[in-house]
C-alpha cells in the first residue's frame, strides 16, 4: 500500500495510478472541480491567517444587515456578525467534518466489506444483513436518530453521519472484493503463504479501490449536504459555531429582504458539492478500463 501511494501520487505516468491521473487530467470539468475544491479547502484551512475568529462570534447590533461592501465582503447578518468570516470558518466544519465522515465510513466500509467479500458464507450473511438493516433507513433520518441518542455536538454528528454512510461503502467494497477474490493472483498470494488479513488489505483492497474511490468523492458531496441539512434542522453544529447549513438556518427568516444571507452560504454548499461531484465523475471515467486509450 505504501508503495502504491508513493507511485500514485507522483505523475510518473507509468504506474497504474499514474495512468489514471494522466486520463483524469484530460477531463476539463473534473480538473476545474479539482481546482475549485483545492481553492475552497485552502481558503477555509488558512482562515486563521486572514480572519480573526472574533469576527465570527462578536455581535454588533448597530452593524446588522449590512449589504456586501468593502469591509464586510459578504455583508453582515442579523446580529451584525461578519458573514465572510462566518462562511469561511463555517466551511472548516462543513468540509472537514465531511472529510472526516468519509474517512471514517471508508475505513469501516473497507473492513466490513473486505471481511464479507473475502470470507463469504456466514460472515457475509451476518455483516450484510446488519448493513441491510441500516440501509433500509434513509441516511438523514438515521443520522437524526443517532444524534438524538448520543446528543448534540460536532463529534457526535460526525459519528452519526459516518454510521449512516458506512453501509454504502460496505456494499461497494464487498462487491468489488467478490469480483477479485477468485483471481489467480489471489490464489498465488495464498500459495506463497499470505494470511487472510494480508490478502484482504494488501492484495484485494488496493485492486478493488477504483469503484470505492469514485463513490467516496460522490458521497462527500452527499455528506456536505447532510451536514448542512442537520445544521439547518438545528440538530447539527450548535450556534454560535458557524457552519454552512446552520448559517442558512439562522438567516432563513431574513432571506426575503436580505437575500445575500441565504445566497452566499447556499452558493458555497452548491459550489463545493458540484466540484466534488465533477471530480468523482472524472475519476470514474479515468478508472474505467473501457476508456483506456
Amino acid at each position: 500500500m505504501k508503495k502504491r501511494r508513493k507511485n500514485g501520487g507522483a505523475v510518473s505516468g507509468r504506474s497504474v495510478w499514474g495512468l489514471v491521473w494522466f486520463r483524469f487530467k484530460k477531463n476539463k470539468l473534473a480538473m476545474a472541480g479539482l481546482f475549485v475544491l483545492i481553492f475552497i479547502m485552502l481558503a477555509v484551512l488558512l482562515a486563521p491567517l486572514y480572519v480573526d475568529y472574533q469576527a465570527v462570534v462578536s455581535q454588533k447590533i448597530t452593524n446588522r444587515f449590512k449589504a456586501p461592501n468593502a469591509t464586510n465582503w459578504f455583508g453582515t447578518d442579523q446580529f451584525g456578525r461578519d458573514l465572510f468570516a462566518r462562511v469561511v470558518y463555517g466551511g472548516r466544519i462543513s468540509l472537514f467534518v465531511g472529510l472526516a465522515v468519509i474517512m471514517l465510513s471508508f475505513v469501516a466500509g473497507c473492513i466490513l466489506g473486505g471481511l464479507a467479500g473475502y470470507f463469504g458464507g456466514v460472515v457475509d450473511q451476518v455483516i450484510m444483513r446488519i448493513v441491510d438493516m441500516f440501509m433500509a433507513i434513509p441516511a438523514i433520518l438515521l443520522s437524526m436518530a443517532v444524534v438524538a441518542a448520543l446528543g448534540n455536538g460536532t463529534g457526535k454528528m460526525l459519528i452519526a453521519l459516518a454510521v449512516a454512510q458506512t453501509p454504502r461503502f460496505t456494499r461497494i467494497v464487498r462487491s468489488s472484493i467478490m469480483g477479485l477474490r477468485n483471481q489467480e493472483f489471489i490464489e498465488a498470494a495464498k500459495c506463497y503463504g499470505s494470511s487472510s488479513a494480508r490478502i484482504i488489505f494488501k492484495h484485494l483492497l488496493p485492486n478493488g479501490m477504483g469503484p470505492v474511490i469514485v463513490s467516496t468523492t460522490l458521497t462527500l458531496g452527499q455528506v456536505i449536504i447532510n451536514i448542512a441539512s442537520l445544521g439547518f434542522l438545528g440538530i447539527g453544529v450548535a450556534s454560535p459555531t458557524p457552519e454552512w447549513g446552520t448559517i442558512l438556518s439562522e438567516t432563513k427568516a431574513f432571506i426575503r429582504y436580505y437575500p445575500y444571507l441565504g445566497l452566499i452560504p447556499g452558493a458555497c454548499i452548491a459550489l463545493s458539492v458540484m466540484a466534488v461531484n465533477f471530480i468523482g465523475d472524472g475519476l470514474r471515467d479515468a478508472l474505467d478500463p473501457r476508456m483506456k486509450n
Partner: peptide, 17 residues
C-alpha cells in the same frame, strides 16, 4: 512448497511493483 501457475498474465498483483 511453492507453486507456479499456468497464466503469468493473471498470477501477479496488477497494482504492486
Amino acid at each position: 512448497i511453492s507453486m507456479i501457475f499456468q497464466d503469468p498474465m493473471t498470477s501477479l498483483n496488477p497494482v504492486q511493483t
